[in-house]
């Protein structure tokens, strides 16, 4: 056994895992995809923009917790998406815009999540959801090659995979369908939780290969989407999946300032009821909507997941430099 102290130090530094999760091929793939995204939007006349990572407010969304920091007495929220800032640009007359930036979400770390990730977000004035679906599918095909495409609704997918109709069946039926999956945890689930559980545990694995868009999420999960014109039980939203992995979330954007202010207030009241941290409402976003947000659709995509799928990998760690505990 060696007693050389330098050798002992070297042995110790070998024991510390300092290496990146991604290999050189993954780094090159990522760089190539970033360039491809920029070329795609340049060809279509969509302007690249940058907005701050630190904002005076964060999201009030019940299922997203913000990370925040202090500068002197001021609190800044690390943005969970560039949504609010980009809508203020749209209201100021930017026209179609996209952004590739970092977004932050507390507590989200796993095979397909990280508290810090690269987000691709873009907005299209004048587009409806069908037009945005076309563009989303075109971008995905460009980044990872042609794949089978399928469009469905949450209702159709849930009925097919679980026998549950989210628009008709009562809360008891939903809970009983969840019980075999989670046991007594089912008793603590509300209607939306049950739908989320069935979606992640049963529907998603059954979506199959290729690009699948799913529309018709419940109105209670509208977030900042308007409600569907023909059915107020559902939001004008879609999610897009590649090989069963969720990669994007799109809205026909809510443009009604009063409704936006009311949703912020409802989120904050529900946060207070559940004992969750309060987040100030974004008055500047409400003011921008009051001034006038053009009728538009927008979508946010998890760029790291796109790299993962293009690489044929099945965890983010292998396509990110320093994922999770490596950071």
């Amino acid at each position: 056994m060696s007693t050389d102290p330098a050798e002992a130090d070297r042995a110790e530094s070998r024991a510390v895992d300092w290496r990146p999760g991604a290999d050189l091929a993954a780094l090159r793939l990522r760089a190539g995809l970033l360039a491809e995204v920029r070329a795609f939007f340049a060809e279509r006349g969509v302007l690249e923009v940058e907005t701050p990572l630190l904002g005076a407010t964060g999201t009030t969304d019940l299922h997203i917790e913000s990370l925040w920091l202090r500068d002197g007495a001021a609190t800044f929220y690390l943005q969970s998406s560039p949504e609010h800032a980009m809508k203020r640009l749209l209201a100021a007359g930017s026209g179609p815009i996209y952004q590739l930036t970092r977004a932050f979400r507390a507590g989200e770390v796993g095979r397909l999540h990280n508290r810090e990730f690269t987000i691709l977000e873009w907005y299209r004035p004048g587009f409806d959801l069908d037009a945005l679906m076309d563009e989303t599918e075109a971008l995905l095909a460009r980044l990872m090659g042609e794949r089978p495409r399928r469009r469905t609704s949450l209702r159709e997918a849930l009925v097919a995979a679980t026998g549950i109709d989210p628009l008709v069946d009562d809360d008891t039926a939903l809970r009983e369908r969840c019980r075999p999956l989670v046991g007594d945890v089912a008793d603590g689930l509300d209607r939306d939780d049950c739908i989320d559980l069935l979606l992640s545990h049963v529907v998603q694995p059954a979506l199959g290969a290729g690009i699948v868009t799913v529309r018709g999420f419940p109105a209670s999960r509208a977030a900042q989407a308007r409600l569907a014109a023909d059915d107020s039980r559902v939001a004008a939203r879609f999610e897009v999946f590649v090989d069963g992995v969720e990669v994007g979330n799109a809205y026909h954007e809510l443009i009604d300032a009063a409704e936006m202010a009311a949703r912020f207030a409802a989120d904050r009241a529900e946060r207070a009821r559940r004992g969750r941290p309060d987040v100030p409402a974004d008055d500047r976003l409400v003011a921008a909507l009051d001034h006038g947000l053009p009728d538009c659709c927008g979508i946010a995509m998890g760029f790291d997941r796109l790299v993962m799928l293009a690489a044929g990998a099945n965890d983010l760690d292998s396509v990110c430099t320093f994922h999770g505990a490596r950071a």
């Binding site: 969304d61 299922h63 989200e108 796993g110 999540h113 992640s200 999420f217 999960r221 977030a223």
Partner: peptide, 12 residues
């Protein structure tokens, strides 16, 4: 341990 979270929903 797998963290799963649908787009705008409850995490499990």
């Amino acid at each position: 341990n797998e963290f799963v979270k649908p787009g705008k929903g409850q995490a499990f």
